[in-house]
């Protein structure tokens, strides 16, 4: 049963549009799935390989701008951004990785944080290429309806899911975790830590970049503030994985679901506005104290906390 759970969930999701959800519900679903993809990719690098990135907005933004610039500068469909960003973001990750992967622990985290900000400022000022703070508006939207966007992000999520599952169970997965647990031990056991960290960074970056390219197509508008955002992209990505469960398989999905719903809910409360970040901050503290392994990682503990223990037998 458990083996088929991913397929069952995929099948249920695939028939959802057929039963006719409201446009708003579809929008929420698309966001949840998109954030799960980003969460999964972060989890591979941060959760499994132990390289905690505070700058995933850099990859998201480069992916988003790959699609956007194809449209604004080359007059091509921004959908070409999806395949093209694989190459663009992989190259970008290699360059960035060459710099940040020399650093360890908090230094790595700070360098990634800086890289996201550097990218935002670059995009803001390189007006000729990016349109600067004016952003890029896609005037010819492919579809008005959400259905096809939903299926496209669902396919991306499914492919990501199965690829990461294969990866984590393979030699590469062992190497990633070994690096996370003790880099010196891993190195002395014959693991080329620089190489494997770079691989983790590239895969993670490319997946997030694809999500970014999808975002451009879906939202139809990007600007540096939105796609290179520290709070709304980089930090939310970490929160999704923290809330769901770092280095757990299902964590990013659970986290994405909770965070997207929470963001929508808080936004609907009148007079709160940008205070949602305060709520997220408090939530993060609560999670770190009570469920350090996230909802998935500490599920047994969570059940005890809410008094459902008997139900589990």
């Amino acid at each position: 049963m458990k083996r088929y759970l991913p397929l069952i969930i995929l099948a249920i999701l695939a028939v959802l549009p057929v039963i006719g959800l409201s446009t708003y519900m579809m929008h929420i679903l698309i966001l949840v799935i998109m954030w799960s993809v980003i969460g999964m990719s972060w989890n591979l690098l941060g959760g499994y390989c132990g390289q905690v990135s505070f700058g995933h907005a850099a990859y998201f933004g480069v992916g988003a701008y790959t699609a956007g610039v194809l449209y604004s500068k080359f007059d091509l469909s921004p959908w070409w951004g999806l395949p093209l960003c694989v190459v663009v973001v992989a190259l970008f990750s290699l360059v960035l990785g060459f710099i940040v992967l020399r650093l360890r622990g908090p230094f790595f985290a700070l360098a990634t944080l800086a890289s996201g900000e550097v990218m935002r400022i670059t995009a803001e000022n390189w007006v000729d290429f990016t349109g600067g703070t004016m952003g890029i508006l896609i005037q010819r939207r492919t579809w008005v309806e959400k259905t096809w966007y939903f299926y496209i992000i669902l396919i991306i999520a499914a492919l990501t899911f199965f690829m990461i599952k294969k990866l984590v169970e393979s030699k590469l997965g062992y190497y990633f975790v070994a690096i996370r647990e003790d880099q010196d031990a891993a190195e002395s056991l014959g693991i080329n830590t620089t190489l494997y960290k770079t691989i983790a960074l590239c895969i993670s970056g490319v997946i997030t970049g694809i999500a970014g390219a999808f975002y451009t197509n879906y939202m139809g508008y990007i600007d540096p503030h939105v796609v290179f955002a520290l709070h709304d992209i980089s930090i939310i990505t970490i929160m999704i994985v923290m809330v769901g469960g770092v280095a757990t398989f299902w964590g990013p999905y659970v986290g994405a679901l909770i965070m997207v719903l929470l963001a929508e809910y808080i936004r609907s409360i009148p007079g709160l506005g940008a205070a949602h970040q305060t709520f997220f901050g408090i939530l993060l503290i609560v999670i770190i104290i009570f469920l350090p392994n996230g909802i998935v990682g500490d599920f047994q503990k969570l059940k005890r906390l809410v008094g459902l223990r008997r139900a589990s037998g």
């Binding site: 190497y175 070994a178 003790d182």
Partner: peptide
């Protein structure tokens, strides 16, 4: 320097993959 959060078996498998 054990790989702390890995089982004994997984620790040794990680090396054997060399």
């Amino acid at each position: 320097k054990p790989l702390q959060r890995m089982s004994v078996l997984d620790n040794v498998i990680a090396s054997a993959y060399l």
